[in-house]
Design a protein around this nucleic acid. Structure first.
Lengths: 352, 352
DNA sequence: TTGAAAGCGCTAACAC
DNA sequence: GTGTTAGCGCTTTCAA
């Protein structure tokens, strides 16, 4: 396909003969120097005379030469590319993270290959394999539930990997997490401070690491305050609107009803907000994870904000340090959260 | 770097000697066949005996062989990778588009390289060059204002390119757009139908293609209804909250005040909602581009919804058709919008 | 059905 | 300062 040039497309001016892209050799010949010299010029290596450099530059411009990075990758083993596997790039938290990673990558003259695992083990694995096959210099992965043991050989072989948002199972590498326990604890304490004693936790599916941690924080806050736990006030389910609506209604209409809710992530928050929209007097609400327009709702929603940009940046910076040869011991970074009071979390419990 | 194996990282079990990744040749030797035979097995080519196939498969598994796609790319010229250059991956519309492109790419066993131009010409250009250097099979670009003439040579040379969301200048290729004029016209007509005659347009920066089109639709709707245009009711500025607030206030407090607003994109909508939050009786509002939680605001926001997923899918499908060799004439696809009435756009004008 | 040879475009290693 | 040689890992081409 590279040899036999692709057929001309109609409607292109001067589409006469789509020519083979000029190679480094073509430049060398045209400039009357050796290939290696052109290579030096292209890569800004020292040891080329000013006049030669100038001449080579001109020829490069004339021919419109652009280096073939596949060849370079093959030779050097580094693709000037890193890979990112997350749950779903279209999700706000992760797209912000992606953007932050991209920014750091650019600073290191790298590009970014992205893949969404959609929480599917097989897809994660396939994506990682495809990325490794492309000789990426390093990998940032938000591990799905399951095991990342399949990555062990590559990590041992020296491919830098950083896990983000959730720790891996069966593989050891640098990891950047949110301090979920402390964040949830802080958020729930905030509700307790307003006088709430019956606080419902509306979380995402069971076996999700972040949710486990946030429930733990929720429990810790109750314990700290000497408030008894009640499992009927803890819900863990995939946040489809229907199911959450039923949960919320039952929590609010129980004999000892919840007077406040704490949500486990943005999807749960959305579902709860939808459920509360048409309901009676709304309970207090603190949401884990900030979201757009939170401050425009009535009342504005108090949140425990995470920092997706900070997570992306941190993960990428660690990754590039490893790529640069840092061999210090693996580290686990926990990013702090920030409580942003906006109104919904500052309501006192309704009079019983 | 490929030759001298990277130093072992501590804390890895069995990190004794990070070994060179096995190559196709290693597999061939171990299996006692020729390299080409292994290549055939790996690529599922016909013409290998069942027994041989079986043996090669086993050796591949034993050695943990994974093909080096740089080498393959170098040989074949195709990287099994496409590139996407958008304004900003972290923006909801574009992250949804990215996700849709990714999905189509996966179906074609391709990966996705992403880059954000941030509306910067130089960055767009650099990104495109970096993508082309990586031998991407094709490119989807949301062109920034300026010129894409620099892409002409590569398009002519046969690299498939699809422009998305905005047309390119100085380069011809397939293009997928939203029918902005018709969408805006429809949205404004909706307001006119509620009896509004003074409708403010709050749009993003001048010289943005989509905004130009949406203003055109706005004007067309007014003309259709025989309502005189008034330039004081048209605002085009980067939607920082401060500036938009001033604009909105002046539109609403003018001698002949606006009784309804139409926003030009999501950022403008956010700014307007913020501005309206603390203001007096809110005007009617129709927003171009849907956004999360639009239905949870009070009142819920009526929007002219675009279809980012449809745009990403369409652009990617066209791209892969081109990659597969389709040489038919370039096409321009315009995706339809959908008016979603939710409340804010169905208010009648306040009694003057 | 299988294999040998050549080379994709580049750079590492070493001459000069 | 500059050039020569070899080869990264794969696939293409052609031969057996």
């Amino acid at each position: 396909m590279a040899q036999s040039p692709p057929p001309a497309r109609p409607g292109q001016e001067g589409a006469a003969t789509p020519r083979r892209r000029p190679t480094l050799r073509d430049v060398a010949e045209a400039a009357g120097v050796a290939a290696k010299t052109v290579s030096r010029v292209v890569n800004g290596e020292a040891g080329v005379g000013a006049a030669t450099t100038e001449r080579v530059r001109r020829v490069i411009a004339e021919l419109g030469y652009r280096p073939n990075s596949s060849a370079r990758t093959l030779r050097q083993g580094r693709a000037a590319t890193i890979g990112l596997v997350c749950d779903d790039v279209s999700e706000p938290f992760q797209s912000a993270l992606t953007r932050a990673v991209e920014e750091v990558a650019i600073r290191h003259e790298c590009m970014l290959l992205v893949a969404s695992s959609l929480h599917d083990r097989e897809r994660e694995r396939t994506s990682v394999q495809a990325l490794l096959a492309r000789q990426v210099d390093g990998l940032i992965v938000t591990p799905v539930a399951g095991s990342q043991a399949y990555l062990g050989a590559d990590i041992a072989a020296g491919t830098p990997v950083v896990f983000a948002d959730r720790p891996a199972v069966g593989a050891e590498a640098d990891t950047v997490l949110v301090d979920n326990v402390e964040g949830a604890r802080r958020g729930v304490r905030h509700l307790l401070e307003q006088g709430h004693r019956r606080i419902g936790f509306v979380g995402d599916a069971p076996h999700l690491y972040t949710q486990d941690e946030r429930v733990e924080g929720y429990r810790a806050a109750l314990r700290d305050a000497g408030v008894p736990e009640d499992d009927r006030l803890i819900s863990r389910q995939v946040p489809e609107s229907g199911a959450v609506r039923a949960t919320v209604e039952s929590m609010l209409s129980a004999p000892e009803p919840a007077t406040a809710l704490f949500t486990g992530n943005a999807l749960c928050t959305y579902a709860v907000l939808r459920a509360l929209r048409d309901a009676g007097p709304p309970p207090a609400l603190v949401a884990f994870d900030d979201f757009p327009l939170a401050e425009l709702l009535h009342p504005a929603v108090t949140v425990v904000a995470q920092d997706p940009v900070g997570m992306g940046r941190t993960a990428a910076e660690i990754l590039f340090r490893r790529i640069a040869g840092d061999t210090s011991a693996d580290q686990v970074v926990r990013l702090r959260t920030r409580l942003i009071p906006r109104g919904s979390g500052e309501r006192a419990p309704a009079e019983g």
